[in-house]
């Protein structure tokens, strides 16, 4: 398989799963004829027809509400919300119905649907196009929240999300859509939802990140390791909920130091939960306070100031050095 970018990898997963399972369909605004505003659904309407690549009217709550009905009726809808900033209208349907349909019906009805949406900053976009609000979804029992970081894991995780028997919020870091290419195996591949990946093993410090921040973080680690002898364990969280604290805590037990890098605002972000779980289980192994590098608790600035409000390589570097030297 040639190298591909994240958009191509997502497109590949959709093609593969729609081919394999005729109950899988995509739906959303501009996903059919136009192939999606980012081209994630390119070619699907030609190959699978308009009934399985549905151009919907413009109504987010309607998209997810009808996806819930489809899922109840035995389909596997993969609904695209054009930008995560427009997804909050779906919160009523997701929190009020999708997340609790299994509980409410004692397992009689389930909602195996996926809501895909681009999120995150760094692409000079207009208001509502740059936020990282994974917490909204992760704070809802009954929803799984997945954030890939690369073409390969995007394809594998989206495949897993489509096959998952429960609702999955699949947040795609749009900054990484075309940022780089990666070898994606010819053979179909899935990854387990709810599992973090230790991308590089190390013994001195645990570094946890996800989404577009993962790459920035990795670059900093490469830089630091080329300058000095230090061994950093790099963890890509991949699933926000359910959170794989077993992998993180085992790592922290080994290293005694931890830094978390998140694009989301600071207060009540996923980093807060990671720290709480470290506190629950491995506090006594810590040799330094756990540090977080994050966004700020402000309305996401328009793109003129955006860069200052996203974690920078320098901020990540300072957090790592301060934690190592504590």
């Amino acid at each position: 398989m040639p190298k591909m970018n994240m958009i191509q990898a997502i497109n590949l997963a959709l093609h593969e799963e729609m081919e394999k399972d005729e109950t899988v369909l995509v739906m959303g605004q501009d996903v059919g004829v136009n192939g999606g505003v980012f081209r994630a659904t390119e070619g699907l309407s030609v190959k699978f027809g308009k009934e399985r690549a549905i151009d919907t009217p413009l109504a987010e709550s309607g998209i997810i509400g009808s996806a819930i009905g489809m899922a109840i009726a035995g389909l596997k809808p993969v609904a695209e919300i054009q930008f995560s900033g427009f997804s909050y209208l779906t919160l009523g349907q997701l929190e009020g119905n999708a997340a609790r349909m299994r509980t409410r019906s004692r397992g009689q009805f389930t909602c195996p649907l996926v809501m895909r949406m681009p999120y995150g900053g760094g692409v000079r976009a207009l208001e509502h196009h740059s936020e990282s609000k994974e917490t909204y979804w992760a704070h809802t029992a009954g929803l799984k929240v997945v954030i890939p970081s690369s073409p390969r894991n995007a394809r594998a995780l989206l495949t897993a999300a489509i096959r998952d028997p429960d609702p999955v919020i699949f947040m795609e870091p749009k900054h990484s859509y075309r940022a780089f290419k990666e070898e994606v195996p010819e053979k179909k591949e899935t990854m387990e939802i709810g599992k973090a990946e230790i991308v590089r093993e190390g013994s001195d410090l645990t570094l946890v990140s996800w989404g577009a921040m993962f790459h920035l973080t990795k670059k900093v680690v490469d830089q630091i390791q080329s300058e000095r002898k230090v061994s950093i364990e790099l963890i890509d969280l991949l699933t926000i909920s359910p959170m794989d604290s077993a992998t993180i805590n085992a790592s922290v037990r080994k290293t005694g130091r931890c830094v978390i890098v998140q694009e989301a605002q600071k207060t009540l972000g996923p980093a807060s939960e990671i720290i709480a779980r470290i506190n629950d289980e491995v506090l006594m192994y810590l040799e330094a306070p756990v540090k977080r590098v994050s966004g700020y608790d402000v309305v996401m600035p328009y793109f003129g100031r955006e860069k200052m409000y996203l974690p920078t390589m320098e901020r990540i570097r300072r957090a790592i050095e301060e934690t190592l030297e504590f």
Binding site: K266, Y296, D297, V298, V299, Y309, R315
Partner: peptide, 29 residues
């Protein structure tokens, strides 16, 4: 962006603004 969050700046936001200014002061970028 910190100026227009609330009419009266909360202690939380005051601290975060200071942290923000400190951080960007250190960033050569």
């Amino acid at each position: 962006p910190f100026d227009y969050l609330f009419e009266t700046e909360t202690d939380d936001i005051k601290a975060l603004r200071a942290e923000f200014l400190n951080e960007i002061g250190k960033d050569a970028d």
